[in-house]
Simulated scan of single mutants.
Amino acid sequence: MAGAADLDNLEYYIKFPSPNFNYSQPNGTGESDYVFVVNEEKIPVILLFGWAGCQDKYLAKYSQIYEDRGLITLRYTAPVKCLFWKRLQMITIGERLVKLLVDLNFENHPIIVHCFSNGGAFLYQNFTLALEKSPKPIQVVSNYISPKKTFQSNPLENLKDDKNNCPQHFIYSKKDILIPYTDIEYFANYRKSLGIDVTTLCYETSPHVKHYTENKESYVSSVCNFLNKCLNGTN
């Protein structure tokens, strides 16, 4: 089931697996087939936070990775005006996203955040702040970032000391001319120094926003292997 909804102007897209989805068999796409062993009463929920200006049709290509494997996906991209000019509104957006998870009764499901670029990371920053005030605890088991375009406010700097100690995975490239790979490695190493389980996937040649497009099989394998590691023991 898929749909779009408006929660006080918060437009999101959610998709649930079909009732007869077979969790014991690979998806059969030939694209890094992978089976997740999940508790079907607490199916993992993947939150995809898009980059600044992201159109949902592009974010949907990434959510398909998880939907093909029977996971729940929820996509949301913060409005550009909130990312650049009305940043205080991001606090409210983070709170509404947390409220949405509670309203959907997802607080007992493993939550995985896949954020893209600084836009997604800035949203994640406000989401984690809202989690601290949530009336019900929500289990975030992992998050990972696909770097894209940099802008003035640097959420990676703000997230260096993020209180959430879940595993993190970073996907980036040395040929991305819009965000230095050294910035990503500095952040990843800093988080490692705090005792966080951090893994990385660095491509040598894929250009800006082309990591998945040009390295589809290894990208999907990396995501699925990381996700399986994080879900192990949480079902």
Rank of each mutant, 00 (worst) to 15 (best):
A2M: 11
G3H: 14
G3D: 10
A5L: 08
D6R: 08
P19I: 03
F21V: 02
N22P: 00
Y23T: 01
P26S: 14
N27I: 08
G28F: 06
T29V: 13
T29E: 09
S32C: 14
V35I: 12
N39G: 04
E40H: 13
I43R: 06
I43W: 08
V45L: 15
I46G: 03
F49D: 04
G50A: 10
G50D: 04
A52S: 12
A52T: 12
G53S: 05
C54N: 15
D56Y: 11
D56R: 15
L59P: 05
A60H: 14
I72N: 03
L74C: 10
L74H: 04
R75A: 13
R75M: 14
Y76V: 04
V80D: 07
L83W: 07
L83G: 04
E95Y: 02
L97S: 04
K99N: 15
K99R: 15
L100I: 01
L101R: 07
V102W: 01
N105G: 03
N105H: 13
E107C: 08
N108E: 10
N108Q: 08
H109C: 10
H109T: 04
H109Y: 09
H114D: 01
C115E: 07
N118V: 01
G119E: 07
G120R: 10
G120K: 09
A121W: 02
F127S: 07
A130K: 03
S134F: 10
P135G: 03
S142Q: 12
S142V: 02
Y144F: 11
Y144S: 05
I145Y: 00
K148S: 10
T150I: 05
D161S: 08
N164G: 05
C166V: 04
P167T: 02
Q168A: 05
H169W: 00
H169K: 00
Y172L: 05
S173V: 07
L178M: 06
Y181C: 12
E185Q: 15
Y186R: 09
F187W: 14
S193L: 12
V198D: 03
L201H: 08
L201C: 10
E204K: 14
E204R: 12
S206A: 15
V209Y: 00
Y212I: 01
K216L: 11
S218N: 12
S222N: 09
V223S: 02
G233Q: 01
G233I: 02
N235V: 00
N235I: 02
